[in-house]
């Protein structure tokens, strides 16, 4: 395993574009901390974001994992091009001839995916811990380490998304097309959802119907469903909503085992299909 990782990280690290993207990713992740310095004023009222409770434990786990997940696209590009390059350079063929088995090849790629997901998770965990201790109103250990399932969900989410990217890289063989395909897939899921929900079943946005049920089984939707948006959970926002006279928005922000299992099933499908494609294909 050490050998495979060393092979893969040499391939990534020696590539300038990949190196820059990986570094950019981690720099941008640490910029989440800068949110704390945002201040804005409504009339004479000055609001400092950090004081609005976004860095309170345990809410910070939810908020930071949600925001950090946006940056995953940087690593997605690295992963897709890492795979597609092997095809364009013909090095996949050469690696196999040099004595790497197809199984080892796939394994090494998924080890990279796992490492990226793990490193991001660890980074976000440490950063949230530091930010939380600097700004949180509650510092009791039991509160600090509650709701840690968001960190776990973040890891699963990244691992699944990167696996999907890798699978597309293997399927499409060209990085630009694979990323395009990823976008098309995302759009297609949404269009499918709208058609089922609004056109076929004639639903509206207030109520849920079969469209909402089925869409959560789709890969991208299931991944984004793992960690729901945290903004409306904030006390400040809730206050505003109530003041506007809207109906009490009862929303479930927690992470469910069923959602995790859907994502895990997709991940397994991506890994196995990638292996199957590689095995069947003549190079």
């Amino acid at each position: 395993m050490k050998r495979l990782l060393s092979i893969e990280f040499q391939k990534i690290w020696k590539n300038k574009a990949s190196r820059v993207l990986v570094l950019t990713y981690f720099v941008l992740l640490s910029f989440i901390a800068l949110i704390s310095s945002i201040k804005f004023s409504i009339g004479t009222f000055e609001i400092r974001i950090a004081d609005q409770g976004i860095f309170n434990f345990p809410y910070i786990w939810h908020f930071n994992t949600y925001v950090a997940a946006f940056f995953k696209i940087f690593l997605a590009i690295v992963i897709v091009s890492m795979m597609a390059n092997e095809y364009t350079y013909g090095t996949l063929k050469q690696n196999l001839i040099d004595g790497l088995s197809k199984k080892e090849f796939i394994l090494s790629k998924f080890l990279v995916v796992g490492t990226f997901a793990l490193a991001s998770t660890f980074f976000v965990f440490v950063m949230s811990l530091i930010l939380g201790y600097s700004f949180s109103s509650y510092n009791e250990l039991s509160i600090v380490f509650s709701d840690l399932e968001y960190i776990f969900a973040f890891f699963i989410k990244l691992f699944a998304f990167f696996s999907f990217c890798l699978f597309l890289g293997i399927l499409v063989k060209r990085s630009a097309f694979a990323l395009g395909f990823l976008f098309v897939w995302f759009v297609a899921e949404n269009i499918f959802y709208w058609i089922v929900k609004f056109v076929i079943l004639g639903g509206n946005d207030k109520t849920k119907n079969f469209g909402d049920t089925i869409i959560q089984y789709f890969p991208i939707e299931s991944m984004s469903n793992l960690i729901k948006e945290p903004v409306t959970r904030l006390n400040a926002i809730k206050t505003i909503e109530n003041a506007m006279g809207g109906a009490q928005n009862v929303k479930d922000y927690s992470i469910h085992f069923s959602q995790i299992s859907i994502v895990l099933v997709w991940t397994i499908i991506f890994i196995l299909t990638s292996y199957y494609i590689l095995k069947k294909r003549d190079l």
Binding site: K11, Y89, T91, G99
Partner: peptide
């Protein structure tokens, strides 16, 4: 077939890693 962004030495070292 080699990685164009690596030097000759790095490419050969990669092959060494694969061959163990």
């Amino acid at each position: 077939n080699f990685y164009p962004y690596m030097t000759a030495k790095e490419n050969l070292e990669l092959v060494c890693k694969i061959k163990g």
